[in-house]
Write a protein that binds this DNA or RNA. Sequence first.
DNA 1: GACAATGTTCGCAG
DNA 2: GCTGCGAACATTGT
Length: 263
Amino acid sequence: MPELPEVEALRRRIEVRALNRTILAVTPGNDVTHIELPSAEERARLEGHQFTEARRHGKYLFAGSASGPWMMLHMGMAGSIRVLDTDEPQADFIRLTVDFEGPRRLTFRDPRKFGWVRVIDDPDAVIADHDLGPDALSIGEAGFADRVGTCRGAVKSALLDQGKLAGIGNLWADEALYQAGIHPEARAADLSEEAVARLHRTAIRVLQSVCDTDATYSELPDAWLIHRREAGRACTRCDGAIDKIKVGGRTSYHCPDHQDRAA
DNA sequence: GACAATGTTCGCAG
DNA sequence: GCTGCGAACATTGT
């Protein structure tokens, strides 16, 4: 689930329901072996503070305030966040809970344990340390051409490289390439200037559209690839059929007929 | 039981 | 030193 638009939807949940409330306790959930969570000391640092701001960079999420510590979260493959009234039932696979005054509770759920939570002091410094590229929604055409359009490998691998561009994952990389008519295995550096610009515009439009629905896939246009990620399904843009291949080790759905290797 | 899964990280080869 | 690739990570669901 969690690429840029999905993480943005989680950020909004925090913004709408979990800001400006004093943190009473931060508690690890059940079965927290093999998952990185803040130590007891770090959890205690959050208590008594409020989150006044929720930020996102790529797929990374931050909640904190100018004066206090920040909680940094990554959703891994299957993590999610809910903000509940404390009398609502707890779901399975909750790895961390933050109890606020109110009462209200933020829960971090992560069945597959690929996500993690840290307590940090300065989001900007951590973003720089992680060697993350600019957020995919904020990069301009020239920056995109410079960072993605020069890669010697497959254009899809370039889109997925968080050091070049932060936020695009497997689903929305496929979607952007499908809508831009570019083959995932095309060498990025071989694409025309026009094709790179088209991919940039398309990627931003795709990501923004998904954000606009709060990452509710059923509200996305029927013609999108997201609704037909299955080999053999009919393409919505030409007479072709969707094919499933591996690119850079990731499952990739595309239409061999209209997605051009030499765009 | 085997396999695939929307994430990142690490080691190796070029 | 940088870039690109494949495997590994822990667990669930099909």
